[in-house]
């Protein structure tokens, strides 16, 4: 640590490119020092800026949890739903207004535990949603309870003698259920994450991006894994990029290798396309294509 704060360098005529995406009046945010959620939002915001997406056509839906707070920090049409229900809320938005780009931004617990059924069925139906799952391997907001994603042998507030139940491998789960785009990065992979998010926006169908992210306060402290920066160094050291890796082989362990990359990129008709073609087929002339949705 050096001695003085060299304030000459503080430069207020440089604009942070993510500023237009943020509700600046709510920042500093509530996330802990070294929490990775803010870094994921940073990559997300940069993806929006870089892909020149029309922000007016974008809606972001979160569930409940530390990650769920994202909905409150982005200057977009956003909604903080009840726990586990981000995907059904987002599905409703998308069906009512198919032109919307709908992003679901939530935690591993919210999406794969209480919301687990919604996750697999949205993937099966290939609803055109971009799901960003911040996986900090724990139920953070409520005190560090074991989540379906918590790795074997780690200690949590509900497994003080160690977790012994097998955890979900989320990329494998959503691929098996039918997702058309599946990627995993960590908060160390800021550029790759941002690129993946931009890529998912170009897909039509259920896209799932898992981001492994530090929770120094409720996951790492109990497991003596240091602070946020220690987690970042671990990600840097132990991540291996393997695009197209069979998702069955990318399960996470507590301290082992983290396989990252784009695992799945395929095409199949999304829910709306299948619905319209079914209606056209069975109703023939009687089916009236509704192109403009009027919401009042």
């Amino acid at each position: 640590m050096s001695d003085i704060l060299n304030t000459d360098i503080l430069d207020t005529d440089i604009v942070n490119p993510v500023e237009p995406i943020l509700r600046s009046d709510r920042i500093p945010h509530i996330w802990c020092p070294g929490c990775g959620i803010g870094t994921t939002v940073n990559s997300f915001a940069r993806a929006l800026v870089d892909s020149n997406i029309d922000l007016g056509s974008l809606a972001l839906v979160s569930g409940i949890g530390c990650t769920g707070r994202v909905a409150g920090y982005v200057k977009l049409d956003s909604f903080h739903t009840t726990h586990g229900r981000a995907i059904p809320f987002a599905t409703g938005l998308k069906l009512a207004n198919p032109k919307l780009n709908v992003v679901v931004y939530s935690g591993d617990g919210d999406l794969s535990a209480i919301g687990g059924n919604h996750l697999i069925h949205a993937a099966r139906r290939n609803i055109d949603l971009k799901v960003i799952c911040v996986n900090n391997l724990i139920y953070a907001m409520t005190g560090g309870q074991t989540a379906p994603t918590t790795p074997d042998h780690s200690t949590t507030s509900t497994n003080p003698y160690g977790v012994f139940e097998p955890s979900f491998n989320l990329p494998h789960l959503v691929e098996a259920a039918g997702a058309v785009y599946v990627a995993r990065w960590t908060t160390f992979h800021v550029r790759q994450l941002s690129r993946s998010i931009s890529e998912a926006f170009k897909k039509k169908g259920f896209s799932f991006i898992e981001v492994i992210s530090p929770c120094p306060t409720l996951y790492q402290r109990r497991n003596k894994m240091g602070d946020g920066l220690d987690a970042m160094k671990y990600y840097k050291e132990k991540s291996k990029v393997r695009h197209g890796a069979p998702t069955g082989e990318v399960g996470l362990t507590m301290t082992g290798e983290i396989i990252v990359g784009k695992f799945v990129d395929r095409d199949r008709p999304d829910y709306e396309t299948m619905m319209r073609s079914q209606f056209r087929e069975s109703l023939g002339e009687r089916f009236v294509e509704q192109t403009e949705m009027v919401c009042s």
Partner: peptide
């Protein structure tokens, strides 16, 4: 700027 979780730095 990309790494900062608090949007506190950019270049």
């Amino acid at each position: 700027g990309m790494y900062c979780p608090d949007f506190a730095i950019c270049a």
